[in-house]
Design a protein around this nucleic acid. Structure first.
Lengths: 147, 147
DNA sequence: CACGTTCTTGACGTTGACGTCAACGTAAAG
DNA sequence: CTTTACGTTGACGTCAACGTCAAGAACGTG
């Protein structure tokens, strides 16, 4: 897969003036989809939920580096088993205004909550891994005793 | 809650001969449910999926220590975001026969797969925590610059 | 300019993980 | 013996996270 054969259209830079190569590149929905190993339907679903908001060139979606970054965060959150709504509130936090002090303190509070959650998960994870290790040892013992 | 007022029935030991106190105790569905902070519906659902299989005293479910152990594993798996079906295959692995060598080798293979999955999750988790830390630092910097 | 490819917007279907409600059994308490 | 609390089996509802058509629009190519 990903062999650069014939289909190599739409790699033009976007609206600005520069045309370097990677900073101002744009991507089609198909490109981001199979770059991240998801379907276009999934990508659109995430847009419906406000997780990403690509530019529109006419009716067509145009994805920038920012969108890919966010999509990456979403998928990591998904691998960690978070519901998409929760993921949205988290990554929205990342580029929230935080101009006023109150805003900043709210954000810091949210951070603490998130961290508590993640650390609970880490405990669960370590426990699961430890059990798995112990179980493997017992299995290997059984195996060696069979010889 | 859990005040030992009037309702203190059904704490008799089960079928055997001993009657110590905690090893051979049994529990009702309501007891396990609110001990683990889930509804009775959830407990029954897990039974439907074969995650636990309590004894039946007539039609009534009677839970033993084994069931509570398994329920604990299930809920940890759930906190980690695993689908229940997958959880079942994993904890079934724990008390699989593993008498013959082939069985044992199969189990060891499964263990490796599981561990790979868990370690991917750990990487995601560490990354998320690291990002969170960095983000908090930036926020605190912003805050101190506002003074 | 017809054609195939890629994209679009609906809209309904599906699966997992339960919630919820109805209707009924049963055992201790008054 | 009725009440009350807890338990049981269906069966349908719901919500999230997509899958899966259907039916067009837009665009480069032979």
């Amino acid at each position: 897969m990903a062999t650069p054969t014939t289909t190599r259209t739409g790699a033009r830079s976007a609206g600005g003036d520069a045309g370097s190569d990677d900073a101002a590149r744009t991507w089609s929905i198909a490109e981001v989809a199979d770059e991240f190993g998801v379907t276009h339907r999934t990508v659109r679903h995430y847009e419906d939920l406000g997780l990403i908001s690509p530019e529109r060139r006419g009716t067509t979606r145009v994805y920038h580096r920012r969108d890919r970054t966010r999509l990456g965060l979403v998928l990591r959150g998904r691998r960690l088993g978070f519901p998409l709504e929760e993921i949205r509130t988290i990554i929205d936090l990342y580029d929230a205004p935080r101009g006023r002090r109150s805003q900043l303190e709210y954000v810091l509070g949210q951070i603490d909550e998130r961290r508590a959650d993640l650390e609970q998960r880490r405990r669960d994870l370590e426990a699961a891994l430890a059990e798995l290790d112990g179980f493997e040892r017992r299995c290997r013992d059984d195996l060696s005793r069979m010889a």
